[in-house]
Write a protein that binds this DNA or RNA. Sequence first.
DNA 1: CGCACGCTTGAGAAGATTCAAATGCCGTGG
DNA 2: CCACGGCATTTGAATCTTCTCAAGCGTGCG
Lengths: 235, 235
Amino acid sequence: MRAPQIEAAWKGLAACQTCGIRHLALFADLQESDFAHIHTPIEELRYEAGSQIYGVDDPAEAVFTVRRGLVKLVHLQHDGTQRIVRLIRSGGVAGLEALLRPGYAHSAVALQPVEVCRIPVTVVQRLQAETPRLHFRLMEKWHEALSIADDFLTDLSVGSVRQRLARLLLLLSEEAPQAPVRLFSREDLGAILAVTLETTSRTIAEFKRTGAIREVGYNLVLCDRPALSAIAEQA
Amino acid sequence: MRAPQIEAAWKGLAACQTCGIRHLALFADLQESDFAHIHTPIEELRYEAGSQIYGVDDPAEAVFTVRRGLVKLVHLQHDGTQRIVRLIRSGGVAGLEALLRPGYAHSAVALQPVEVCRIPVTVVQRLQAETPRLHFRLMEKWHEALSIADDFLTDLSVGSVRQRLARLLLLLSEEAPQAPVRLFSREDLGAILAVTLETTSRTIAEFKRTGAIREVGYNLVLCDRPALSAIAEQA
DNA sequence: CGCACGCTTGAGAAGATTCAAATGCCGTGG
DNA sequence: CCACGGCATTTGAATCTTCTCAAGCGTGCG
C-alpha cells in the first residue's frame, strides 16, 4: 500500500456562471451580481484514480465540489488500517469543515478519475457575508453529508457482509441502474463495509456464482438489482 | 418492546437571555436586540427516560436543544430492529433537518430524564433572515452532528465487540472520568454497536470479571479508563 | 404469589478472520 | 516476443467471534 501521491492537473479557472452542474452544487442559488464578489480564483482540477485531493495534515483552506468521478473520505485508524466514512459523487462537496476548523477531518482520495472545483474558504466566507442566498445551499450540503453518513451507519455497517455488500452495490448502481458498475479494490470495499478484503473477495465471488452480479470487464459488473435487493433485506 | 409514548412535561417558556448553557447552544452568539425577533414561544420541556421527543412521522416544525440528559436518534430497519445513529448530550441539537425538510430523518428518544428547548423552525428562519450571527453557530451544530456520526462510524462500528464496547464506555465517561456511568438497556447498547443484546451482555460481564468496569449500582458502573483504552486499541 | 420483563448463561451453528499458498494480471527489461 | 517481478485477487483450512435459540435467574409490580 503506497502513500497516495498528491497530484492535481490544472484544468483552468472555473466559470461558475456557465457551469453545467451548478444546479447540483454550492452556488446553485447565486445570481449574476453575486459572482462579482469572488476575488480569489476558483480552480478546476483533475485527479487520477488513487491520488489524494487533500490530507488531514493539509491546512484546510478550501472546500471541494466534485464535478465528475467518485471521491472517498478516509479515516485512518490507530492500527494503520483505513475506514472509508463517505463516498462523494458528482454534485457532492468535500471538506466543508474547512469553513469552521483549520484542519480537515479526513483525507480525500479519488477512487476514479475525478474533476473538482477548489473553492477557497475566503470565497465562501466573502459570499456568505454579502448574500444570504448561499446559506440555504450550504445547509443543504451539510445535510447531504449527514445523510450519507447515516446511510453508511444504517446500510453499510449493519447485518451480514452479504447484506452490506448488496446494499453497497445497489447504492453504486442507483444513478444508472442499467449501466455497469466499476468496482474498486477489495481493500477499499472492505474499508467501506468494515470487513477484511478476503471476506469481500469471497462474497463478490459468491454474488458472481449466484448471478446477482455479472462481470463484463475488469472490475466492471452488471448488477441484478432485484436479486441484490432480495439479499439486502433478507432476514 | 412497547412503543415509546410521547409525553412531554411543560416546564415553561425558555428565557434564552439568561440560559445557563447558552454558550453551548444554538443562540450563543445572539445579542440582546436579536431576541426581539423571537415571536413564537420557545418551550422548555421535560421527558422521562424512554419517552419519545419526536418521531419520523411527526411534522418537522421544531429543532430541539438538549439542556440536560441523553437523547438517542433511532433509525428503524425493515426487519423491525433499531439502529442508534447518534447520541446527543447537553448542548447538542436534534432535528436540524427540520430546517430543510418537512419530516424528521429519525426518531428521537430520551435515554435518561431529559430537558430540551423546543425551538420552532419559524424562529430560526426569522432569526436567520435578520441576523448573520446565527449562521456560524448553525454550521457548528451541523458539523457537530457530522463529527458524532463519524465517531459512530470509526469507533463504534469497527473492530471486535470488545473494542467497540470499550470505546463506547470511554465516550460515555469522558465528560466526567471519575463519575460512574449509567448504562442503558442491553438492547440499546446493542443497537449502538450493531450487535445482539446477548453478545453485549456477555461482553459487559467479561469487563466486570476482568475489572475494566466495576458495578456500583443498578446499571451504574465505574470505568477503568486506562484498561478500557487498552482494550479499545489492542490489535 | 405469580407474572412480565430485562438480564444472564449455555450450547451448537453460522459467519468472519487469519495465515498461507496459488493464481492471474500487467508492465518492464532482456 | 517472452520471461520475470510485483501486486492485487482468489481460494483453502483452521480458528475465533458472533449469532441463534433456549432455558434459567432476578426484580418489581399487580
